[in-house]
Design a protein around this nucleic acid. Structure first.
Lengths: 197, 197
DNA sequence: AGATTTAATGAGCAATCAGTCACCGAGTTT
DNA sequence: AAACTCGGTGACTGATTGCTCATTAAATCT
């Protein structure tokens, strides 16, 4: 690869890095291509030399991120079919990139169709893992007889809620960290009837 | 009141009516002042004769709506301290204006500070009613020993999730109607350990 | 009836953005 | 070293939008 191609690739990666930073901080909708160019120290036009448009830039960044998330989940499911372990690991993955997932939770309904579908598809894969484990757990008499779909929606809905209103729940730091044990114990309470004294 | 004042008031109310229609249909963020004026059959400038700016218009519409909601809830709590009754009535109120509440669930994080605070304040009043009933229910041994705050967040988070992704859950009709019995039964399952055979 | 007030008008302003294009100059090829 | 290639530039464009203001005409007042 010659000097030119090398420089081109370097610039491209630099844009991706800076764009992700800006997106995570201000959200996708409130980040302008101008800001990105400014922060990256390149001309505004250069951005469109590397990415057809703003949407494509977003898609590429999120695709990469969601891929990471998906493979993390895949690993997780491969390693263990224990629901609590799965939930803990899922929350870990969210916490690692919490700011990004917070932006996603808030802005998802406003993204272009294609991107929204991609994100929701990934999400549905993860949900289905939980769904399956719960369903078979109910079949095995391990969990109470309740509707697994609704149970999953309770879990994901609640997590989504915490994420999307993150700035209200915590000033700095992590919502997931703050509420993880409550989320886990309450979700367990939904699935299992412990004997209480 | 003379002819002029009467006409003025009529125009003002007409704007409010049309604006609400547009807002409910397309969301506050995606409705332009131009669209409203066009639909209302008035000049664009007229809108700003009656409302200082777009935000004020939104605030006025929502204030009225939230007032209705709040008094509905107040009634509800006055009439009954039974959690299931409260939940049913709450879901009724949401279902009545579901499109509006769906917009609210999606767009809340993007509203101007002042409006966001107002909405969240109303919301917190409603939540606290549920919180209190759950807390005293736990004290009375009626419900399981779990964290009432988290339980309430599970409920409101889930409802919020259904509302904000409404268009995915139903094509036409009501998400609340579709999932109300599942929401109620799953939430009851969280609070109460039924004996199962 | 003439003077005054004011609701309504709509052309136009200013700001914001995504995206374009003619041009430049360093790097590559001949 | 001359010709050519191409990554990078940044001024510019066009679309969108919230909002203003000089002007109009109908209602009200004197």
């Amino acid at each position: 690869m010659n000097k030119r191609q090398l420089q081109k690739q370097k610039t491209r990666e630099h844009i991706l890095k800076i764009a992700k930073q800006e997106f995570v901080e201000k959200g996708f909708l409130n980040t302008t291509t101008n800001q990105i160019a400014l922060q990256a120290g390149i001309a505004h036009g250069t951005l469109f030399l590397h990415f057809k448009n703003k949407d494509n830039l977003i898609v590429e960044i999120l695709d990469k991120e969601l891929e990471l998330m998906s493979s993390g989940i895949q690993d997780l499911v491969g390693r263990s079919a224990d629901l609590e372990q799965m939930l803990i690991l899922y929350l870990n993955l969210l916490e690692e990139d919490e700011k990004l997932f917070s932006v996603l939770a808030r802005e998802l309904p406003f993204y272009p169709e294609e991107l929204r579908r991609k994100i929701m598809f990934r999400d549905s894969l993860i949900r289905s893992h939980f769904h399956n484990v719960i369903e078979s757990g109910i079949g095995a008499g391990k969990y109470r007889k309740l509707d697994p779909s609704t149970a999953v929606t309770f879990l994901f809905g609640t997590i989504n809620y915490y994420l999307s209103l993150r700035s209200i729940f915590v000033e700095n730091g992590s919502v997931i960290a703050k509420f993880r044990s409550k989320i886990i114990s309450t979700f367990k309470a939904l699935l299992i009837c412990e004997k209480e004294k």
